[in-house]
Structures are given as C-alpha cells and as structure tokens.
Design a protein around this nucleic acid. Structure first.
Length: 278
DNA sequence: GTCGATGTTATCAA
DNA sequence: TTTGATAACATCGA
C-alpha cells in the first residue's frame, strides 16, 4: 500500500506539522519494529528536534538536529511496510489497535505509528559520505528523477521481466504492485515481457506512463485500498482511477476485454490480455 | 475451523 | 547475477 505516491503524500503532511518540533518522549511497545536497539533508538530521538522530512523511495526520512561525535547528522528512517500508518495526532491518549510506537512532541501533538501486519520497520542512524544514510545506498534512482534515456537503457540491459524490474528497489526506488500494474497498462506492455525484448520506443513509453501514473496518484493523495491514510488520517482517492489493479474480470477501459490476473515474478498482477501484448 | 489471498522486504538456495 | 520460494504478520472472505 504505501508506495511512492502514498509515502510522498504522508511526507508532505508531516512537513506541515513536524519541522522545528522537538521529540519529548519515545514510547515503543513492540520493539520488533526497530532495526536499532531500543535504548540507542530512544537516546537518539529523545530531545532531538526534527529539522526536515523527506522521502527516499518508500522510506520516510526525518532529519534530526542531533549530531554524532564525528559530526554526522542523525536520521530517523521509517518504512511503512504494507499496512503502516504514520499520523500526527492531536489526541495522545487513545491509540487505535496495532499502535506499536508513539512520540509526544513539544507543543502537544503526538506522532503515532500504527501497523496491523507489522512489516514496517524504523531505525535511528547517521549520514554517510553522500549525506544520506548508508542503509539507503543500495536503492536505485527515483522514478520521478531518472531521465527517459537512462531508464530505457537500464531496462533494456536486463533479462528479467519488466514487472520484476519495476518492483526491484535496486532498479528503481518507490514503485510497488499497484503502480507497476497501472504503469504497464498505460504503456500497453505485458508484465512478463523481458526488459531486453522491449524496443526503445516501448521503453520510453513505459517511462512516460510511469511518471504520469505517479504524478496523478500524488495529486490524488495516493490509493486507499484497505489501510492507507495520510499523515492527517485521511484516505487518498487514486483507487477510483485504477484501470486494472482491483478490476480483475471487469472490462478493460480501453478495449472491453476482461482484465486478467496472474502471478508474475511472484506477485499478483492485473493486466489486459488484448491491450498488453508481449 | 481452514485455506488462500493481501499492498512490503529480507533471506536463502539453485 | 538472477530468480524463485519462503517467511515475517494479521485480517478478511469463501
């Protein structure tokens, strides 16, 4: 659920409420969500001021005022997994079920982390040589930043299926199952087509479709299928514009053929058998 | 009650 | 290097 557009929407919401605020307290009731030992995590965050909130792929990056002895900036990195919610709430007392951590802020609000399936993770770390924490170094380029020629060249250098590549965070950071399927449909590319088998023109079309889908989804505040809400607890509306995802068996909006669903690269994939040829 | 599916990634084996 | 299978978890619906 929280793919690039959802995380971007959450980050924009957090930016309206977090920068400049100090973390007064760290409460973690489910330490398994942490990649950093609890004591170290709490030490890093407690009393620190949040100076900036950014997105890196599907990760939320909170820059902290604190610095390590070596002078490196500290970061709080959050990945929401499949069902994670990161909400800036007024009510610091009544937490919904599956709330595993919360962070009272100076001035009264509480930043709250809720995650039904507990696939999400958070950690406290410090910047690497490039200014961004080393844990994020292995991720590929951002789908909204990579240029068309570069994308086409990288795609066509690979034997793997396009769907697998779009979902591979080392190939591109931020795409997930919904936006991969919606991108492939708009570009009229079969999810199981091999990267190398795509013409340059089709690879470029895929790039354009990807940007278009992501931009529209961000504009609509993301897709709310089951759990996703933004930093204010509000759902997005891009699910109303899905053309294949969640429409299995329904007529293709372009040609009327029944939308199919099959497993490609281990992931459920929805596609139109008539519009999306290999 | 059981089974299978659900948006995530990490890990292991071939 | 790449790929596929599996596990982590809770919920929902058949």
């Amino acid at each position: 659920m929280p793919e690039l557009p959802e995380v971007e929407t959450i980050v924009r919401g957090l930016r309206a409420c977090l920068p400049g605020r100090r973390v007064e307290e760290v409460v973690v009731t489910q330490p398994a969500i942490l990649r950093t030992p609890l004591a170290q995590f709490a030490d890093t965050l407690t009393g620190a001021r949040i100076t900036a909130v950014t997105r890196h792929g599907k990760h939320v990056l909170l820059e902290l005022s604190r610095r390590s002895r070596a002078g490196a900036r500290a970061w709080w990195i959050v990945h929401l997994g499949m069902t994670g919610q990161f909400i800036c709430a007024r009510d610091g007392q009544n937490h919904p079920p599956h709330t595993h951590a919360w962070f009272p802020l100076e001035g009264g609000d509480v930043l709250r982390y809720t995650d039904v399936r507990r696939f999400g993770r958070m950690e406290a770390t410090s910047e690497g040589a490039g200014g961004i924490p080393a844990v994020l170094a292995a991720l590929g380029p951002d789908p909204l930043e990579i240029d068309a020629a570069d994308f086409a060249a990288r795609l066509r250098a690979r034997d793997a299926r396009v769907k697998a590549l779009l979902l591979d965070q080392r190939f591109l950071r931020g795409m997930g199952n919904i936006y991969a399927d919606e991108t492939l449909f708009r570009a009229q590319v079969h999810p199981a087509a091999a990267g190398r088998r795509l013409s340059r023109a089709r690879a470029l079309r895929l790039w354009a479709a990807m940007r278009e889908v992501l931009a529209e989804a961000i504009e609509r505040g993301g897709s709310s299928i089951s759990d996703y809400v933004d930093a204010g607890g509000r759902p997005g509306s891009f699910q109303d514009l899905h053309r294949v995802y969640g429409r299995t068996g329904e007529p293709c909006v372009t040609c009327g053929a029944r939308v199919r669903r099959s497993i490609v690269a281990g992931r459920g994939s929805a596609w139109c058998p008539r519009c999306q040829k290999k």
